[in-house]
Amino acid sequence: MGPLYKRPICVLSGFTVPWLVLVSPSWLSLSGVGPCWAVLWLLPWALEDGWVSGMIAGFFLGILLDAISLGGATYVPALVALGWWWGKLGRRSPLLEGSLNLGLLAWIGSAVVGLSLGAQFLVKEFGESIFWLLHWSFLTLLSQSIVTGLVAPIIASLLLLLWRRKRPIPFLEKTRLRKFARNRKK
């Protein structure tokens, strides 16, 4: 687990996620569906702080989001899985902060969250409305993942930079980064 969780400001920034969900600015939406704020926050956190911290953050964030939503489906499994995956990914390749990479990861993450929620709704409401529910789930998933993927390069990059600044880079990691950059030039 990285040192981000020790910084109160970094932990408190997670509480902005439910606020942003509640505000849900209409100008930042596609077909009335806003971005998946949880993914936008969790992605840089897990990339920076590792898979254990990512999973824990995903779990708490999921609980927080479940508290402000109607219920019937939970965010927790998808966010925990994403926290684990992104945490592993961040450790393997330290230069993932490229805009395109972040956008792609956020897009996949939002789709995973959407698939998880949609599947839960479908299982719960299984019946004659299945066609309508599939249609609705697909549209929501598509809109949300597109918006999240478009917004991620800005928000996730900023958060990543901010947290990089808050956390001094260890010597070993620095040398690894330099080596990686040198190999890339070659």
Partner: peptide, 12 residues
């Protein structure tokens, strides 16, 4: 109305 989600996963 202080917050609305009329599209998306939650209709509340």
């Amino acid at each position: 109305v202080i917050s609305r989600q009329t599209q998306g996963w939650w209709h509340q």
